[in-house]
Simulated scan of single mutants.
Amino acid sequence: MPLRAHIAELRRRVLLAFAGIAVGAVVGWFLYTPVYEFLQQPVLDLAERDDALVTVNFGGLASALDMQLKVSLVLGAILTAPWWLYHLWAFVAPGLKDREKRYTFAFLAAAVPLFFGGVVFAAFILPQAVDILVGFTPDGAANVLDAQMYLTFSVRMLLAFGIAFVFPVVMVALTWIGLVGARTWLRGWRWAMIIIALAAAVLTPTPDGVMMVLMALPMVLLYFLAVGIAALRQAAVRRRLRRAGAEADA
Rank of each mutant, 00 (worst) to 15 (best):
Y86C: 11
A5W: 05
G162N: 01
F107P: 08
D139C: 00
P168D: 07
D50V: 02
L186Q: 09
R238F: 05
G162C: 05
A77P: 03
M1R: 06
D66T: 06
A164W: 00
L85P: 09
A141W: 08
F124Q: 12
I21D: 02
A235Q: 15
V74S: 07
L232P: 04
F58T: 02
V43F: 10
L198V: 15
W189L: 06
W191P: 03
A173K: 07
Q40I: 00
L221D: 11
K101R: 15
A111G: 10
R4S: 08
L133H: 08
A182H: 07
L222E: 07
P113Q: 14
Q40D: 11
G135S: 12
T55I: 06
R190V: 10
V56K: 09
G209H: 06
R99L: 09
G20W: 00
G162F: 02
A230F: 01
P218R: 14
A231M: 13
V220T: 13
D66L: 07
V35Q: 06
V71L: 13
L61H: 11
M1D: 06
I195A: 15
M211S: 14
V92E: 10
T152R: 04
L10G: 04
V71N: 00
Y223G: 02
D146W: 03
I163L: 14
F58Y: 11
E100L: 11
A93L: 08
R156T: 04
I177A: 04
R239V: 03
G140V: 12
G209N: 11
V155I: 15
P2L: 09
G162M: 01
W191C: 00
V120S: 15
A109H: 05
M219Y: 01
R243P: 00
F136A: 09
A248F: 11
P205T: 01
L114S: 05
A8D: 10
A109V: 07
L88V: 14
L133M: 12
A246D: 09
A8Y: 12
A226K: 04
D50Q: 11
M149K: 07
A25C: 01
A216C: 12
L114H: 04
P113R: 13
V14G: 02
I125F: 14
